[in-house]
Nucleic acid binder design. Structure first.
Lengths: 226, 226
DNA sequence: TCCAAAGTGTGACCGTGGTAACATTTTATT
DNA sequence: AATAAAATGTTACCACGGTCACACTTTGGA
């Protein structure tokens, strides 16, 4: 992907809706950005690392994860093409990454230096409003995550997950979007604990499952046990 | 507190640093804001309530809390004079309060309608940048909270709390900033569980405590057990 | 000053879920 | 097709912390 290529991506991005291709080309000088490729599981930003850039995902999937003192993983959210990371850290009173950012697949990231972001904010109001929306939406993601993990039991996490996926996939047969290991990380629990609880729910007649799908059997019980 | 009074508060607020008193008076027309007083424990915004205003705390303390399905309380953060709430919801793609907002003491709130906020953003860049900082800082508060509650054990929560308070208060004798009941809510746990763990820590020689203070005895053990 | 209400200490009981260890299956690599 | 590596299933053990129940203390109003 050369200069022209990612320029095409940018010009179709909502943040840059107000910019003509010429204007974009004019603003984007080489010292203002870096395009980098990351392998799967490669760290993009360490926890407590200083933030100097806003990152735009050109391709691939990127996970933001919280690691506790014992190394347990809690996946906060997964971002993809067109999503933006680190915008909040450019404007906040503390500019260190509170969590680790790593590539979940081969990923190409456009690192936009903060000077560029500030300049773009100066130049264009639509960009700035768009950035406020991006940052504001991050607060909602984090709030939702707090909501999700402060539901105590694993069963409640699973039910919540199944409700959501069943609605998205419009089916009682939910195809798992990731491995069970990754699903456990999303809940911030042990893989074996997830496995155990799935078994219990099967015994209770709520679900059926195999390696790649979970079938919702008794949606009534599923609903009333929330 | 009449019009003049809160105008004085506004003009000394960093968000309005660029505004002359005249300019402020010009912008602030009655249909743009409401000043309201809330009693202790009175709800300011319910969860899932639609957000129409950005709220500026003129006096008192305001808690943002997450309630789970069984009514357990997790206090996310406590805000006070000069702090701003709801700014993120004005710019985000979803504008319902994800958590409950209530007065922790008698509180006076200035509700600024979103039209006014948008107008202020149009008028003044400093205001807009300031607002971005406010919203960005909210993401950090939420990230920190996720970090705090995903530390599994109650003992770790207590140690973390004591480290922080000991540093702030510059003393090994930590005066509790709130009741033990409220402290338990801050950790999102049962009050009796907090009480039990404090006892265990006293037995282990880590701390001493009474109703209003906790004395750090063995800071070494405190540090190594993190 | 009295009394109700709220906060606090304490204990018994037991379910949820972490830990560790191993077997089994699936996936990727040569 | 063969082998290593990763993911998954399964089990026994037990600690942490939720629940409930009650006594005690402090606080704030009447």
């Amino acid at each position: 992907m050369n200069h022209q290529d990612f320029m095409a991506v940018l010009s179709s991005h909502s943040l840059f809706a107000d910019f003509s291709n010429q204007a974009l080309n004019q603003v984007f000088r080489a010292h203002y950005y870096e395009k980098r490729e990351y392998q799967k599981d490669q760290v993009i930003h360490f926890q407590n690392e200083c933030c100097r850039t806003m990152d735009l995902i050109l391709s691939g999937r990127v996970a933001v994860q919280n690691l506790d003192s014992e190394g347990n993983v809690l996946t906060i959210s997964i971002f993809q093409d067109g999503d933006v990371l680190g915008a909040n850290l450019i404007f906040s009173s503390r500019n260190t990454y509170p969590m680790i950012v790593l590539a979940q697949s081969l990923a190409v990231i456009l690192h936009l230096h903060q000077e560029l972001i500030l300049e773009l904010c100066q130049m264009n109001r639509t960009f700035m409003i768009g950035l406020m929306k991006v940052i504001s939406d991050k607060t909602l993601i984090l709030s939702d995550k707090i909501n999700a993990i402060s539901m105590k039991t694993i069963r409640q996490c699973i039910i919540d997950f199944l409700r959501y996926e069943s609605r998205i996939q419009k089916s009682q047969i939910v195809r798992l979007p990731s491995s069970k290991k990754e699903l456990a990380q999303r809940f911030g629990i042990q893989r074996s604990s997830l496995s155990r609880e799935l078994n219990k729910m099967r015994q209770d007649g709520l679900i059926d499952f195999d390696a790649k799908t979970i079938t919702i059997r008794n949606i009534n019980n599923l609903n009333e046990s929330s």
